[in-house]
């Protein structure tokens, strides 16, 4: 599939501090790509470089398979960190500036304001808006040029649960229109709910990149408990059990060879153990994320 964004060995140094270290990524058309990482992991710096507001130290990147120019930024709708607008101008005037810079028709403004439900407030000054409204105006501004790619940086930061839900619905709707979205977030759950692909950054290093759907595949952890005292030994002797851990009086067995809970139950039964508790642990992105961060700590 066509690449929307290719990053090759991108590095940004601030003096001795390396904010982004040798980062390479590839985003294809139609992806909803999550960049996940704790605060200070280099997400915003990376996006800033991609949008030409931050100068890179080395490496390069391509938008739409071509070297970056300002004309490409006009095809991208992007908001970094907080919503940035002229506080003394109305929502409409602010979007007018964006539309004129991007060369988009001014007739796009009203529909996008309706889409983010700010149409009734379009003549009010930006500074009178609540944080949720400001975030929604950001999304409207990113949509005003009918972009091929949207870049959203912490779009739900500081919002209440209802605001978060609204923004996520909005993003999912936009993704359903077939737009490519690059979403930076420190919220795992957000990436898991919204994205198709994700990458994990830490201190400017890429720890992992893959499909969100793959998170549930691969390693299966099954919680087992039984009255039988030999449970642990039997589990350890099982050929498709990789590891056994004790957790709150239960044993967690990590299975291999695509085996499932059913298989371990069968095996235990054949070895004369009846189980009182059997549960497949759903591996959340959070767990995987924490594991990745922990792994990188020990390296």
């Amino acid at each position: 599939m066509e690449s929307v964004l290719t990053i090759n060995n991108l590095t940004k140094k601030y003096g001795r501090l390396t904010a982004v270290n040798n980062l390479s990524l590839d985003v294809k058309r139609g992806d909803v790509f999550g960049i996940l990482g704790p605060n200070g992991s280099g997400k915003t710096t990376t996006l800033g470089i991609l949008l030409d507001v931050i100068k890179r130290t080395s490496g390069d990147f391509q938008w739409f398979d071509k070297p970056p120019t300002k004309e490409m930024r006009k095809r991208i709708g992007a908001i970094l960190e907080t919503p940035i607008f002229y506080p003394y101008l109305s929502a409409t005037k602010n979007l007018e500036i964006v539309a004129k810079i991007k060369g988009a028709p001014l007739s796009n403004i009203d529909p996008v304001l309706k889409k983010v439900e700010l149409y009734e407030r379009k003549d009010d000054k930006f500074r009178t808006f609540s944080l949720g409204m400001k975030q929604r105006l950001s999304i409207a501004s990113a949509l005003v040029c009918d972009p091929e790619v949207m870049i959203l940086d912490e779009p739900t930061n500081g919002l209440d649960p209802q605001g978060i839900a609204e923004i996520r619905e909005l993003i999912k709707g936009i993704a359903a229109d077939g737009k490519t979205i690059i979403l930076a977030s420190h919220l795992l759950d957000e990436v898991q709910k919204v994205c198709t692909h994700f990458a994990v950054l830490k201190k400017g290093n890429l720890l992992y990149t893959g499909l969100v759907d793959d998170i549930d595949k691969g390693i299966v952890n099954v919680e087992v408990a039984s009255e039988e005292t030999t449970l642990k030994e039997v589990l350890e002797s099982c050929p498709f059990v990789e590891k056994v851990k004790e957790e709150d009086g239960k044993y967690v067995a990590q299975l291999s060879d695509d085996k499932q809970a059913m298989d371990i139950n069968k095996y235990l039964f054949e070895h004369g153990i009846g189980v009182s508790h059997l549960l497949t642990q759903k591996k959340s992105l959070e767990k995987q994320f924490l594991e990745l961060l922990a792994e990188s700590e020990t390296v």
Binding site: D52, R73, I97, I101
Partner: peptide, 21 residues
């Protein structure tokens, strides 16, 4: 200076201005 303190210069560039623009 407003453009710098509001960071709107940054957003102008993101939206598609060159620095020369």
């Amino acid at each position: 200076s407003n453009e710098f303190s509001y960071k709107t210069v940054r957003q102008n560039i993101i939206d598609g201005f060159s620095r020369l623009d």
